[in-house]
Amino acid sequence: MMIDTHFVSRLKKKDKLALSQLYDQYGAALYGQAYRILGSEQSAQEAIQDAFLKIWNNIDSYDESKGKFFTWMYRIARNEAIDKKRSKENRITEKTVQLDFNVYDTEADQSTVSNVEDIGVKDLLGLLDHDSRNIMDLVYFKGYTHTDVAKLNDIPLGTVKTKVRRAILKLRASLIKE
């Protein structure tokens, strides 16, 4: 699952086919992130479109020494989605936050996320205990900041940080096994 480094050099040369192939390979992974954070097809499309344009336009600012190319893309896509979500929330009010909180348990979100896709999420998060699962759902899939989660659950920020870390380590171990 390593990104071929040739993607980067081709993108730097403004090779349009490279962007098209990048989309084919990672579009669904990034869209999955954006869609779960935003909960709307329309907004997720906008976020991913903006993300890919940023990848295209800012490719020269990608620094290999600072991390993997996927991480760079992934953070761009997540930031686009989170920014969009914040500006939407500012317009609508914060009341939906409380509802969003229990989406994983209540199946409330099943109408917008198809069953097939949810199996992937459940498989992943099913490995975790209830608390970690909720926190990971919020942080990883819904795009909440650690601080948001600490406030919502009324627990210290340090606890959220360690729980997220432990959850990721656990997922890492199970993903390596596969």
């Binding site: 992974a29 990034l30 992130q33 779960r36 896709e117």
Partner: peptide
């Protein structure tokens, strides 16, 4: 994170 993202792709 990359593996998680690939597994939860839509």
């Amino acid at each position: 994170l990359e593996k998680m993202a690939m597994q939860s792709a839509i």
